[in-house]
Amino acid sequence: DGVAVLPAPQNLSVQSTNMKHLLMWSPVIVPGEIIYYFVEYQGEYESLYMSHIWIPSSWCSPTECPECDITDDITATVPYKLRVRATLGSQTSAWSTLPHPFNRNSTTLTPPVMEVTKDGFHLVIKLEDLGPQFEFLVAYWRREPGAKEHVQVVRSRGIPVHLETMEPGAAYCVKVRTFVKVIGRHSPSSQAECVKVQGETLPL
């Protein structure tokens, strides 16, 4: 190893939303020079059974940016230790380690984006593609007193899904939330969106 001359990266943190995990840190500044960073990780198994083993991150060994998409590296629902060091030529900083191991079950789940449309008398929904780990729980109902709420699990992503054949003149509303199997958690529900046959999308 090169002599640890460079300052180590500081302020490591992970920002995780909808199972996309971004490791970030404060950049190491040397005027006029390009600093490269190396990111490594260790799952719970490695830290318990072989703590000397660290695995280079898929996308950031090296990287120039003071951040790293570690989504492809976090492939189990266990705590992961993460560390970063800076290099400039043969100069190498000490490793900085994330203060608290990261577990993907702490990801922030947001209400999914949806597009509710009519295709003739057909109530159709299109959902954003959040990746294979997501299922969508779609609730829809006819907007009238005492109407029954139907729930449909949708696994297809980014393609229109037919929900219901609507009655002429009736209004129908839809709301959605996601479910992530590998962490067993739901997102909050989206706002309800309503459509009326031969009418416009009605705000609630």
């Binding site: 799952g43 719970e44 318990l48 083993i53 189990a76 266990v78």
Partner: peptide, 13 residues
């Protein structure tokens, strides 16, 4: 190493 880590940690779970 990456594939090994995925297997080992999920077997651990």
């Amino acid at each position: 190493r990456k594939s090994f880590s995925t297997l080992a940690n999920n077997f651990f779970v």
